[in-house]
Design a protein around this nucleic acid. Structure first.
Lengths: 159, 159
DNA sequence: ATAGTTCCTACAGTCGTTGTAGGTTCAAGA
DNA sequence: TCTTGAACCTACAACGACTGTAGGAACTAT
């Protein structure tokens, strides 16, 4: 259990060195001790806290939610209703996002399938391309679901 | 069919004024004519192009892909295999994202359900909270799927 | 001693917008 | 014609959550 450098901590938790320094800069991870040469020295508490953060991030919790969950974890005698609420809210966001992406998947799959069929019939010019056509269709008449027409539906799903 | 100001174009296409100027700045939308007072004046071609961009964005296409699709749309006699490939690649990304989010949904739902049961049994302290506990579990032993352990699985799904 | 790796700070870049500050132009009414 | 107020202009900063880079200092092994 000898103390960690930032590099070994990164390896142990599957983080990047830069990310650990970033978490410290935004106050998510407490500043550790330093060596005489100014290098960070981490104890077990840091490792545990960082593992918590990484795990929560893997589950998609935003850093603000993680900050609150960490604060809750530091008060073991408090009721856990708040933690429940944070996780429930996040679950709801994940479910909304899944529903949005499933609507997009349907529309994309339809576009691609029609383009494929056209290509197989030999109509493989852009001028008849179903993909381009569908995107250019200002009326959105080809959209069965209409799901993506709600404002900003697909924004920032990244990846 | 009189020419549009940037504001009316924004209303017609469901964009924001800033976003239209941004598309012009990055070369996605051609610079329109200007009035004597330096205000933008848009023609129908701009409106069509912007509608195309917005529709593609609603489907989650990144701007680089949209740039390429627009370029393809400007060459109607080219084969549409490239457009097919762009859309297919995007569909694959959407499907990967859905699979990731479904794994997260499962894990979150399990966490929340266990926390709920504990609360109903009256063990509503943070110290026994299943949410906090699951996140703190460095071993990830509670994770059935293991899906989110692959690198950066849940990154940037935003929203 | 020296070479190579890891560490340090500070800052810019990513993506697709959105917001702000500070000023100019336009359309309508008095 | 003048005035109000909305819409427009440029330029730049902020968002979230990192990631990358530059330029240097400090460890570790030989």
């Amino acid at each position: 259990m000898r103390p960690d450098t930032i590099g070994s901590l990164a390896r142990e938790t599957g983080s990047k060195v830069q990310t650990i320094r970033y978490y410290e800069a935004i106050g998510l991870l407490p500043a550790p001790a330093r060596t005489a040469g100014n290098q960070r020295v981490y104890a077990k508490a840091h490792r545990d806290r960082l593992a918590f953060i990484r795990h929560a991030r893997e589950l998609g919790f935003p850093l603000d939610a993680i900050r609150e969950l960490l604060a809750l974890g530091d008060r073991p005698d408090q009721p856990c209703a708040r933690a429940d609420r944070i996780a429930t809210a996040h679950l709801a966001r994940v479910e909304r996002k899944i529903a949005q992406l499933e609507a997009l998947r349907g529309e994309l799959a339809r576009m691609v399938a029609r383009c494929r069929r056209a290509q197989q019939r030999g109509q493989a010019r852009i001028s008849e391309c179903r993909v381009i056509e569908a995107l250019a269709d200002h009326s959105h008449a080809h959209c069965l679901s209409g799901a993506h027409q709600a404002k900003g539906e697909a924004e920032r799903f990244g990846g």
